[in-house]
Design a binder for these strands. Structure first.
Length: 568
RNA sequence: UGCCCGGUCGUUCAAUUGGUAGGACAACGGAUUUUGGGUCCGUCUAUCGAGGUUCAAGUCCUCGCCGGGCAGCCA
């Protein structure tokens, strides 16, 4: 009874069901396995991105849910593309996201010897052969989607000859591309993956871990499933792209008689206004569209981190999105919702003015100064309060004033009274303009009786404005980010069109004349805060002692802007 | 053209495995509010199509339609 209830509670706490969990649970229930082991298998040839985060949430999440563990396995079987630098970056990003693989770290390259032996075994069984064909010949012999392929003349070589040739491939007797080892399956198979796939290719290249110990390297299909088996991985969860590889995955297991890992595929998560293909991300960098892999507009984990996106938001996003097998394109607005949702609970509030206009309180004594109490987080009383200096001259947001306001504009305008947050009610009496007619200063009066922000007589104001005391303001740079692309599906382009044309020219706005209150000026790199009414911000590594730089992670929900842009 | 996989509100994931189509986000109302934030309450138009099996079909069967994937010595 209690057991059942607990099980149920856990299931509910973990969210809705999905086919992956059902499959794992079924395997456990059927006794096919007794412990769940999954794996997250990045190739160390680039940086992890938001899409990898989904895979991690699934791989680590499923293992954790069933009391098992998840191996981190670097799929380093192609020496020409992989580097130690990426291994380090990947470890950092996984930890940052919040996953811990403990001692379960592996490299496919650790299994090169074992993989070689497996290959010899297959050769011995007459199920693999050395082919002298060139890459071009192999391709042309593969057949097409509708026609069977042609068998290579090498296919009939004896096991002894194949074994000898394969050994000589290993010791470096042949040049790159001279020979390959192929599985002997079926050149007429309707699934092209089964038409004698290549298992090993010759590459006289230095590997970031094995150096020059090897000059033959296993292909993905030969390395992945066997690595899974070696590690006892019970469930190898991967992208739908590998669906057609599964028959081959199973064929190797069956013919080698090794641990029967089960591959199950799920749909990758696409996000609107975003691209994640490594090739495209690289192109963005190489063409100077973004500053690098960690540009805050990039969907890479290092980019999101620099942007100030909390890892909790990413994990929660993928968890709640769920997993299925159909193609999807998730609204980026959902990710933003989880960012705000998390940041709202943890980000300290400060005041910062990013588009300043001067405001002078004409009836505030020249020499007077005071410190007011500001709440650190209205969502969390335990966060306490801090002091914010006030004075005769202030910076307020230019957007918060309109000389000739439309009906629904609640903020400051001539003759109107508003509240300065945590301070006083003020009324705008006069507008100072420059020669060009641009408003450069607002002359206001304040009501000393409203200190703290409430009027003793109970009168109300329709707006509360944020502000920064000019005498105490810390000058900072603020970088505003918008979507990198201006269309939902950036890679959907007509013939002759370039996906780069879909870039949003206004994805980055640098504001160099901004002011924040003193406590905000002291935040360290990576710190997150909310600029009241403007959004969540994060201190960028580009910050210097004299000039902090803030990245806007995401805006607050903004009913006013929405109202304004309604009818366009 | 061959094989494989998919098709449920605008988006995404569910539906006790054949039994009242539900959640989240978005949107739209309202309340509250010292952030046009937040919170709370409410509303919200979906099973690709046609047959069939059944007391009962999103779920099973048949035939269509639509979308995606596959011909690297990449992973």
């Amino acid at each position: 009874m209690t057991d059942k209830n607990e099980t149920q509670a856990t299931t509910e706490a973990e969210g809705p069901r999905n086919f992956l969990r059902d499959a794992v649970a079924a395997d456990l229930a059927a006794g096919r396995i007794t412990k769940v082991i999954t794996r997250f298998p990045p190739e160390p040839n680039g940086y992890l991105h938001i899409g990898h985060a989904k895979a991690m949430c699934i791989d680590f999440g499923i293992a954790d849910e069933f009391g098992g563990f998840c191996n981190l396995r670097f799929d380093d079987t192609n020496p020409t593309k992989e580097e130690q630098e990426y291994v380090d970056a990947i470890r950092t990003d996984i930890r940052w996201l919040g996953f811990d693989w403990g001692s379960h770290e592996h490299f496919a390259s650790d299994y090169f010897e074992q993989l070689y032996e497996f290959a010899c075994e297959l050769i011995g069984k007459g199920l693999a052969y050395v082919d002298d064909h060139s890459a071009d010949e192999i391709r042309s012999h593969r057949g097409t989607l509708t026609e069977a392929g042609l068998e290579s003349p090498c296919r009939t070589r004896s096991a002894a000859d194949n074994l000898d040739l394969f050994r000589r491939m290993r010791v470096g007797e042949f040049a790159d591309g001279a020979k390959v080892l192929r599985a002997k399956i079926d050149m007429a198979a309707p699934n092209l993956m089964m038409r004698d796939p290549v298992l090993y290719r010759i590459r006289h290249a230095e590997h970031h871990r094995t150096g020059t110990a090897w000059c033959i390297y296993p292909m993905y299909d030969w390395a992945h499933g066997q690595s899974d088996a070696i590690e006892g991985v019970t469930h190898s969860l991967c992208d739908l792209a590998y669906e057609i590889h599964r028959p081959l995955y199973d064929w190797f297991i069956a013919n080698l008689g090794i641990f029967p890992s089960r591959q199950i595929e799920f749909a990758r998560g696409n996000i609107t206004y975003t691209v994640t293909s490594k090739r495209r991300l690289l192109q963005l960098i190489e063409t100077g569209r973004v500053s690098g892999w960690d540009d805050p507009r990039m969907p890479t984990l290092c980019g999101l981190r620099r942007r100030g996106v909390p890892p909790e938001a990413i994990r929660r996003f993928w968890k709640d999105v769920g997993v299925a097998k159909r193609e999807n394109n998730i609204e980026v607005g959902l990710l933003e919702y989880y960012m705000r949702n998390h940041l709202n609970k943890v980000a300290p509030r400060v005041m910062g003015v990013i588009n300043p206009i001067k405001l002078t309180i004409t009836n505030y004594p020249e020499d007077q100064a005071e410190e007011l109490d500001a709440v650190n987080n209205p969502e969390d009383a335990s966060a306490g309060t801090h002091k914010v200096p006030f004075g005769r001259q202030l910076w307020i947001e230019a957007d918060d004033f309109m000389e000739d306001p439309p009906k629904k504009f609640f903020r400051l305008s001539p003759g109107r009274e508003v509240r300065l947050r945590y301070a006083y009610f003020i009324t705008c009496n006069e507008v100072v303009k420059d020669e060009a007619g641009k408003v450069v200063e607002l002359l206001c009066t304040y009501d000393p009786a409203t200190k703290g922000g409430d009027a003793p007589d109970g009168r109300k104001v329709k707006a509360t404005l944020h502000w920064v005391s000019a005498a105490h303001a810390v000058p900072v740079e603020v970088r505003l980010y918008d979507r990198l692309f201006s269309v939902e599906n950036p890679t959907d382009v007509a013939e002759g069109q370039d996906w780069l044309d879909n870039l949003n020219p206004e994805s980055l706005t640098v504001l160099s004349t901004c002011f924040v209150e003193p406590v905000a000026g002291q935040l360290g790199v990576g710190s997150t805060c909310q600029f009241e009414r403007l959004g969540y911000f994060c201190v960028d590594p580009d910050s210097t002692a004299s000039k902090p730089v803030f990245n806007r992670t995401v805006t607050l929900r903004d009913a006013w802007t929405k109202e304004q842009t309604k009818g366009r």
